[in-house]
Design a protein around this nucleic acid. Structure first.
Lengths: 208, 208
DNA sequence: GGCGGTATCAGCCAAATGGCTGAGAGACCA
DNA sequence: TGGTCTCTCAGCCATTTGGCTGATACCGCC
C-alpha cells in the first residue's frame, strides 16, 4: 500500500523538521518535500505532486500562504491543502477556506489530530482543530457578522496601519470602494472608527 | 566529554520535536527534557537540571515564558536561559533580558545559529539573532524613543480605540493636549497615523 | 539662576476619515 | 426571470485627525 505523500510548507526550519519527525512515525504517511515560502511551495507541489500540502499562513516576505493556496487551486491541483498555523483568526479561516483549503489545524494540535487531518484530507474530508470549529459555528449562527473574503483581506491590511489611499493601491480599487468596505466592516465588528476596528481585529483575531 | 544538556520549553509539539531532531545532529548537545508550559519548565529544570533552557515566550494560558525565567533566576539556577521565540518585539526583548535571559534567538534562525547560541550560553556568553541585536542597538542609540509615563498611558488607551475627545475625558486633559502627546508618540514610534500607532503598539508591546 | 524635559493648552489649516444616498456589473440561486 | 449578495464606484458634507507655531508652568539638575 503506497503511503500518503505530503509536502510541508513553513518558513521555520524547526517546525518543518518537527513535523517530519512526527509524521515519520506513521507508516502510511511520507514527507516528500519541503518549502519555506509560497514560491517554493508552488515549485514543490509541481515536482513532488503530493497528495496533501501542510501549509503555514504567515511566511515572512513574499507570497503568503493564502495566495499560495489560491495559486495551487488555479492550476490543476488535486492536492488537498491543509492550513497549519498558530492562530485561529476568523479572517484567516474565511480567507483560507475561500482560497480552497480543505482543513485548518493549529500548531498546538495533538499529533493524532494532525495524522487524522492528513488521512481525512486525501479522502476529501475536512478536519479542523476544535477552536477553529467553534469559530465557524459561531459565524454560522449569526451570519451577518461574518466578513466576506474581500472584507477580511482589507481588514488584514488595515491592521498594518495603512491609510485608505494605501489600501486602495494595495487592492487595486478606488478609495471610494475602500470606504464602502470599511463601513461594512465597522458595522459587522460593531465599531465606529478605524482605530477601534484595528484594536478589535488584532485582539480578537490574533492578527499579526 | 559530557554533552551540553538542554531542556526545551514550547507549547507546540512540532516545535519541540523539530528542535530535538535538529539538536540530535550535534554530538555535543543532548536534550534531556521537554516542557509545554511555564509550570512544566520549572519542574523540568528541577528534575533534569540542564545546562541550558531553550524557552518560548508565548505559551497559552498560565505562566508565560518571562515569568518562568524570572522564577528560575529567583531560585538558585545556574541554568542559562535562551529565549527562542517567533517575534522580535522590543518589549519582549527588554523584559526577557530584565528577567535574566542570556540569549534571544528567533525561530527562523539557521540551525548553526541555534547550535552556536547553546554553546555560547554555557560559557556565559550571549547570542542573539541579528534582528534582535539591531533592535537593541537601535534602542541604545536613541534613548529618546522611549515613551514617557504619560505618553505610555495615553498609548494604552489609544489601543482601546478611543477618539481624541474620549482620551481627553479619560485623562482629564484638553483635546489640544491629547494631540500634542499623540504627535510625540507618533514621532517616537516612527509612524504618521493613529492607525499605524495602534498596530505597532499592540504588536510590539504585547498590549492586550 | 538658567537649562532641559515634561505636561499642559490654544489657534489655524490641510488632509483624512466617516455617514449618507445611489448605482451598475457579475455571480448565484430559486 | 427575479431576488440576493458581493464588489465596485461616485458625490456630498460633517467630523476628526495631523502638522505647525507658540505659550505657560512645574520639576530636577548643574
Amino acid at each position: 500500500m503506497t503511503p500518503i505523500t505530503v509536502v510541508l510548507v513553513d518558513d521555520h526550519v524547526v517546525v518543518r523538521s518537527g513535523l517530519k519527525a512526527l509524521l515519520g512515525t506513521q507508516p502510511d504517511i511520507a514527507v516528500v518535500g519541503e518549502a519555506a515560502s509560497g514560491e517554493e511551495a508552488l515549485a514543490a507541489a509541481e515536482t513532488s505532486s503530493p497528495d496533501v500540502i501542510l501549509m503555514d499562513l504567515a511566511m515572512g516576505p513574499g507570497m503568503d500562504g493564502i495566495e499560495a493556496i489560491r495559486k495551487l487551486r488555479q492550476r490543476n491541483g488535486k492536492q488537498a491543502v491543509i492550513v497549519f498555523t498558530t492562530y485561529d483568526s476568523d479572517a484567516d479561516i474565511v480567507r483560507a477556506v475561500d482560497a480552497g483549503a480543505i482543513g485548518y489545524l493549529l500548531k498546538d494540535a495533538a499529533p493524532e489530530e494532525i495524522f487524522a487531518g492528513i488521512r481525512a484530507a486525501v479522502q476529501g474530508k475536512s478536519v479542523m482543530s476544535p477552536p477553529v470549529a467553534s469559530r465557524l459555528f459561531q459565524q454560522m449562527r449569526n451570519p451577518d457578522e461574518v466578513l466576506t473574503a474581500r472584507e477580511a483581506e482589507l481588514l488584514s491590511l488595515l491592521t498594518q496601519g495603512l491609510s485608505n489611499r494605501e489600501l486602495g493601491k494595495q487592492l487595486f480599487i478606488s478609495e471610494a470602494t475602500v470606504k464602502t468596505h470599511l463601513a461594512h466592516i465597522y458595522a459587522k465588528l460593531g465599531v465606529e472608527t478605524r482605530a477601534a476596528a484595528i484594536a478589535k481585529a488584532i485582539r480578537r483575531e490574533g492578527m499579526r
